[in-house]
Simulated assay, not measured.
Amino acid sequence: MDNLSVKYGKTLNLDKLTSYCPGCGHGIVTRLVAEAIENLGVMNRTVAIVGIGCGGFSHHYMDIDAIEATHGRSPSFAIGYKMTKPDNIVFTYAGDGDTCAIGLGDLLHAANKGLPITTIMVNNSVFGMTGGQMSPTSLEGQVTTTTVEGRDVSRQGHPLLVPEMMQYMPGVKYLARASVATPKDIRKAKKSIQKAFECQVKGLGYSFVEVMVPCPTGLKKNVRDSYEWCGNQVADYFKPQVFKDETEQDNVA
Rank of each mutant, 00 (worst) to 15 (best):
D106G: 07
R224T: 15
V42Q: 08
D65R: 14
S192Q: 15
Q167L: 08
E198M: 03
K191H: 07
P159T: 10
V242D: 04
L17N: 12
C21V: 01
G105S: 03
D15F: 15
N124V: 03
W229P: 11
F238P: 05
V234E: 13
L108T: 09
M166S: 11
G80P: 01
G171A: 04
V180I: 12
R31M: 14
A69L: 06
I89P: 00
A253S: 13
H71M: 06
G51L: 07
S226N: 14
G97R: 02
M129L: 07
D96K: 05
G231N: 11
N232Y: 15
A196N: 09
M166E: 09
K10T: 15
E38L: 07
V162E: 03
I52D: 03
L4C: 04
E198R: 02
G51M: 00
T70D: 13
A181N: 09
D63P: 12
E140H: 02
Y8F: 14
T147E: 08
K10I: 15
M43F: 10
A181R: 09
T146P: 09
L4W: 12
C54E: 08
I79E: 07
Y8M: 14
M129Q: 03
Y93S: 01
V209W: 04
K16M: 15
A196C: 09
G171L: 10
E35D: 11
S179N: 02
P214S: 13
G95Y: 03
M129T: 06
T92Q: 01
K113I: 15
T99G: 08
C199G: 10
G131D: 09
L104C: 05
I64S: 10
N3R: 15
Q142S: 10
C24G: 03
G25S: 05
L107K: 12
M129Y: 03
P170T: 14
N13I: 15
Y227G: 07
D87T: 00
N39D: 03
V122W: 06
G25H: 01
V153L: 00
H158N: 04
G41N: 10
I37T: 07
Q167A: 04
V162D: 12
I120H: 09
G72C: 10
T217C: 09
K202L: 05
V223H: 12
N44T: 15
E38C: 01
Y174L: 08
V126H: 00
S19Y: 01
G51R: 05
H158R: 07
A69S: 09
S192H: 15
L160P: 01
C54Y: 05
I49Q: 02
V126F: 00
D63H: 14
M121C: 04
Y168F: 14
R45W: 14
